[in-house]
Computed example of a mutant assay.
Amino acid sequence: MVQEINDRILAYFPGQEMEYLSSDSIDEVESVSENFDPALYSPDFLNGIKMSGVPNHRLLLKVGVHIMLLGNINQKKRLCNGTRLQVVSLGKHVIEAKVVSGTNIGFRTLLSRISLTPSDKKLPFKLKRRQFPISVCFAMTINKSQGQSLSRVGLYLKDPVFTHGQLYVALSRVQTREGIKIVLLDKASKLISETKNVVYKEIFGNLV
């Protein structure tokens, strides 16, 4: 759902679009086994793999678009996983972006492709993907939004939150009541005016 929202907003965003494709391969050193045959997995199959915390094979970007870092690039300069930036310029091999969240707002940095080898037990091998460690982030999941401080937030709840404190996390990303807009939908995708706030009363049982 987050990816779908990002794609729709990007389509209406002004400016020329640039496409960046990753270079995907199998890390045979990390995937060695008696029955493993890398020839069974085509480039199209590898390109189609999508995993949490890993950039997609195909990135579409425009100048001015907000992006999020997927990994710790430079902790001293606070370029860490979840940092939000805005694209300043797009090159063939380098992307210039400025930080728009946290304590380092306005800092400009150059991003290049890096090789990522994510650990995913669902795959019989380790994927090696060389791509810019970013994703478009007009929208993000509630969990990914933790630590963000924004002036305006749009909360899209197609389904109710399902864990304790998750609704609080989403609502507390914004500084004022006027800065948040919420869209709530029922099972028939019709607008409604209330949602559940999941609270486990048991955790308060031993409080004095």
Rank of each mutant, 00 (worst) to 15 (best):
E34N: 12
N47W: 08
I114R: 01
Q131L: 01
L184G: 01
Q75E: 07
L191W: 03
G179F: 06
D186G: 02
G154V: 14
I114T: 06
P43G: 13
L10N: 13
S23M: 11
Q86G: 06
V65D: 05
Q75N: 05
I95Q: 06
F204E: 13
L185N: 02
T195R: 05
L185V: 03
T195M: 03
F132R: 04
I67E: 04
P118Q: 01
R152M: 15
Q3E: 10
K98P: 10
N6A: 07
S115Y: 00
T83E: 00
V183D: 07
L69V: 07
L40I: 05
V32G: 02
Q166T: 11
D27H: 08
D7M: 02
S172V: 13
L40P: 04
V198K: 09
E17Y: 04
I49D: 07
L90K: 06
K126E: 03
V94P: 09
I182C: 04
E194R: 11
S25Q: 08
S172H: 12
K62G: 08
I9S: 01
T103D: 10
F13N: 10
K98V: 08
V183F: 11
V198A: 09
L46A: 11
I192E: 06
P118N: 01
L21A: 11
Y156S: 14
D7C: 01
